[in-house]
Write a protein that binds this DNA or RNA. Sequence first.
DNA 1: ATTATTCGTGCGCATACTTCTGGTCGAGGA
DNA 2: TCCTCGACCAGAAGTATGCGCACGAATAAT
Lengths: 225, 225
Amino acid sequence: MRILLVEDNQALAEGLSAILKGSGYVVDLVGDGASAEAATAAQGYDLVILDLNLPEMDGLDVLRAMRARQNRSAVMILTARGLPEERVRGLDLGADDYMTKPFDVPEFEARIRVLLRRQAGMRSSVVSHGGVTFDLTSRSFSCNGTPLDIPAREVALLELLFLRMGKVVSKDAIVASLTGFDDDLSANAIEQYVSRLRKRLVPHGLTVKTARGIGYYLEAVGTAS
Amino acid sequence: MRILLVEDNQALAEGLSAILKGSGYVVDLVGDGASAEAATAAQGYDLVILDLNLPEMDGLDVLRAMRARQNRSAVMILTARGLPEERVRGLDLGADDYMTKPFDVPEFEARIRVLLRRQAGMRSSVVSHGGVTFDLTSRSFSCNGTPLDIPAREVALLELLFLRMGKVVSKDAIVASLTGFDDDLSANAIEQYVSRLRKRLVPHGLTVKTARGIGYYLEAVGTAS
DNA sequence: ATTATTCGTGCGCATACTTCTGGTCGAGGA
DNA sequence: TCCTCGACCAGAAGTATGCGCACGAATAAT
């Protein structure tokens, strides 16, 4: 975890830096807006701790510039000025948290943990094989960002195979997974879906292989056994 | 955007609920820990605002249970107790922010905006696709600087699609995001909004594509697959 | 209070997804 | 080699789903 600390007050800077390093973070320290600009442009930080009261360039300008550059780092603002409207501005400019000096050090550390935890946990629940991606939450497939237009029933089947990539799924298991209690499905229907899926998957480098008498499994083309 | 407010003080609950609804959020309100448990288990909320001082079950237990259930909703803790060590505990248990009563309402709103935009994976307060821009602060759309006049319900829908540009949003997710406990929405209503939105978006180079049986997604016209 | 939007539902139509029937192909076994 | 059985495909009928229209109810604006 790499943190950039932007603070012009020498004493405070050293103190915070020591605290952060003590918690096991890698800390870079700069004392003015221009240096902060340069550092954030050059390095990808997980977190930027930003004092607003900087010489020359205002801290909010640094933040604004970062966001304009599409910089995704988490930002915590640290300042002596405690005006509520000032805070609102900072937060709306893209800061993730805002603390007013003097502050409680344990709380400071806790809030940093929160920001870093969030930063790390932003990965969404998706599974990829080759160029194809499956989003568990929306139950939809996409290829290079563009959604694949596949009928619901085929999605259900593909999902089953996709999540067990390379493993054979028995026909019974497929039927059980696609139907509820009351309704049933002829074995032929499944073969039908498989057939359609095969055609659909050709451009995306996937094939449905058949395990005769047992079931089906998914495979990336060119990965012949 | 759907928010769960957990607060037992009737007056405060109504007040906050009014503020949030005024900002265009869908708000569900519960008054005790058990209800909060049930609600978070049943529904996916974008944000949970949690008072610690609850009858029967402590707010922190609710939070702990949520996280144990892998619930990823953002959580803001709200309390009268201001002990720093108390805050640290809350934050380390998986809360994303912590405010002490009494608090400044504009700052409260700003922090909520922060949590929601971070939840959506956004680092700054405006998102653009093509010529259209969405301002998360005012929750309004504009095209080349001129605001687009869109009804509230359609804004809510467009916001959902816009923030997940190109990704399929399931119809269920749309309904969940647009309705609270008491009211419900027919599937037809959504199709209706989509229909209206489509007409509105034509001049601005955006189209709502439909993933039959699954949901909808937004796409820039001319970016056909 | 009156008017103008906005909101939500029911209905009919069109589309395309599902499912089955029946027939051809290919793999293994006798 | 031939025979049998499962796998695959094509076509067609049935059916669910999405779409737009039009109308009444709710809400906001004047």
